[in-house]
């Protein structure tokens, strides 16, 4: 995950931030007001609302 410019986390400070927002919708307006591109996810708890199953599915990459 590294390239000639160094690892991605070092490049984050030099590049434009573009955001995917998952959760509180109020954050979207704040970011847009500052000229930041943001996509808001229409989120609902996955796995029928079962947190343990949701965690397992995420680990499996589903």
């Amino acid at each position: 995950m590294t390239d000639q410019d160094g690892p991605q986390y070092q490049q984050l400070l030099a590049r434009k931030v573009e955001v995917v927002n998952v959760g509180l919708e109020g954050f979207v307006k704040d970011l847009r007001d500052c000229g930041i591109d943001v996509v808001h996810v229409d989120w609902k708890p996955s796995a029928g609302g079962d947190p343990q199953m949701a965690a397992l599915l995420a680990k499996l990459g589903v």
């Binding site: 931030v17 573009e18 955001v19 995917v20 927002n21 998952v22 959760g23 954050f27 591109d37 943001v38």
Partner: peptide, 10 residues
């Protein structure tokens, strides 16, 4: 182009 996720779910 998205490079950061802002997560505030339960």
């Amino acid at each position: 182009e998205i490079n950061l996720a802002l997560i505030s779910v339960p």
